[in-house]
């Protein structure tokens, strides 16, 4: 009987967590992507380029630093899949969507900040990714990811 209980705890608990994480994570991700696509459509008129200098034809009146920053946590299901990948190798597909949305979200926030400040475009965009360490496992493992995007917002004299 103790073996039964042991089995239930050792298998059942992670299984419940996995199911919970899968559904919650999928829902959150789907909603996030929906929001991202809507905002990308809305902000497509603001160019974001990563040339170091603005095009010489632009008549720039104002400029300033703009940043966009997002922190996203890895859910249990994604981490489990990544753990399995850690054994056999290959593309960690579960993290791909995580990083994709984080990056796009950060860039959208750069645009939003630039828009708030009255800029027309963002030049010299740079992106930095940081790993959030898992406090439980001595810093190993991935608790989440932080993306910082920053660039120079520029205001042009007239939009041509």
């Amino acid at each position: 009987m103790e073996l039964m209980i042991e089995l239930i705890v050792n298998l059942g608990l992670p299984l419940v967590l996995l199911i919970l994480a899968y559904f919650a994570g999928t829902l959150l991700e789907r909603n996030h992507y929906r929001s991202i696509r809507v905002r990308e459509s809305r902000s497509r008129r603001m160019p974001v380029i990563n040339f170091r200098r603005a095009p010489t034809t632009w008549d720039i009146r104002d400029s300033g630093l703009v940043t966009g920053h997002v922190v996203i946590s890895v859910d249990y299901f994604k981490r489990f899949l990544a753990g399995l990948r850690a054994i056999v190798g290959g593309r960690v597909k579960s993290y791909e969507s995580l990083l994709d949305r984080a990056r796009r979200e950060a860039i959208l926030r750069v645009k939003e900040q630039a828009h708030e400040a009255g800029y027309d475009a963002v030049v010299n965009l740079r992106i930095q990714t940081s790993r959030l360490a898992n406090s439980r496992r001595n810093g190993q493992g991935l608790a989440g990811v932080e993306i910082l995007a920053f660039g120079t917002g520029v205001k042009r004299a007239s939009i041509s």
Partner: peptide, 28 residues
């Protein structure tokens, strides 16, 4: 410059996570 929406499906592999789970678990 043409404003356009970023393309989808390039940076994210379109594999269903459940099918990946099944493949990995069964393989291991």
């Amino acid at each position: 410059w043409e404003p356009r929406d970023p393309p989808e499906g390039i940076n994210v592999t379109p594999t269903h996570p459940l099918s990946e789970l099944v493949t990995l678990v069964a393989g291991i």
